[in-house]
Structures are given as C-alpha cells and as structure tokens.
C-alpha cells in the first residue's frame, strides 16, 4: 500500500512538472478520456471543453506547486486530497495567486497507469 501511495504522490509531482513546463500534450496524458475537471467551482468541464480550457490555461504559463495531504487507494480507484498553489503573471506584470485544497479522483487503467478521472481543485473548503 505504501508503494501505491508513493506512486500516486509521484504522479502529482510529475503532473506539476508538466504544468510548469506548459506542456499541454503531456498534461493531457494525465487525464482519462472522459475526465471531468472543475477548475471553476460549479462548472464541470469534460471532453473538448476541458481540453480547450486546459490548453488556454497553460498558455498563460502558470507556476504550480502541489503536495498531497491524504491518499486513499483501493483497487483501481484512488482519492487524493491535495494542497496546491498556482501563480499566474498577467500581461501587465501583476501576479495572481491562487490556492486551494483539491479533491482528485484517479483510476488505474488496463495499462496499469493512474490517471485523473475527476479533478476538483476547489473540492474542499479548507
């Protein structure tokens, strides 16, 4: 079990690297085909809408940091509670600082790879 937890914590670290590299193609590989992302509270996105939002978000070159607070793994399903911050520098040079406690649901595919099925970055109030 601890190996699985380490694997998932590493998953988060590699995801953050891909986001900070602004690499859409790599970031996209971290999601299942029918993943749901709730980057704006109350507005779940899936499919092409999710990918379009992700692509535009990465073009702004956000700087992300994330640390899993809790990891629960059972069979092909995992729940991660993650403390994260994102800084985005606007065209005018000012930086917007975002922070939250994310609720991530991951599933393990038949290829044994864990991917985000549900990405709810504002999923927990604190």
């Amino acid at each position: 079990m601890s190996e699985l937890v380490a694997e998932l914590e590493n998953h988060t670290a590699r995801y953050v690297e891909a986001v900070n590299a602004g690499d859409f193609e790599t970031v996209e590989k971290f999601y299942t085909a029918d993943a749901v992302a709730v980057w704006e509270p109350g507005k779940p996105l899936t499919g092409d809408e999710r990918r379009k939002y992700q692509r535009e978000f990465l073009e702004a070159r956000p700087r992300m940091a994330a640390k899993p607070r809790q990891v629960f793994v059972t069979g092909e399903t995992a729940l991660m509670i993650v403390d994260w911050t994102i800084d985005i520098t606007g065209a005018d040079g000012t930086t917007e600082h975002l922070a939250g406690v994310g609720v991530d649901v991951l599933t393990r595919g038949e290829d044994n790879v864990w991917r985000y099925a549900i990405d709810d970055p504002f999923g927990q109030a604190s």
């Binding site: 299942t32 085909a33 029918d34 993943a35 749901v36 709730v38 109350g42 779940p44 899936t46 399903t77 609720v103 649901v105 599933t107 099925a117 549900i118 709810d120 999923g123």
Partner: peptide
C-alpha cells in the same frame, strides 16, 4: 452539494 460522473467513477459531496 455536488456530484460529478466520469465514466465508471463518481465523486459526490
């Protein structure tokens, strides 16, 4: 309070 379904997995609050 919220509910999201992604294929064969769901997250409910």
């Amino acid at each position: 309070t919220h509910s999201y379904v992604a294929g064969d997995v769901a997250l409910i609050g």
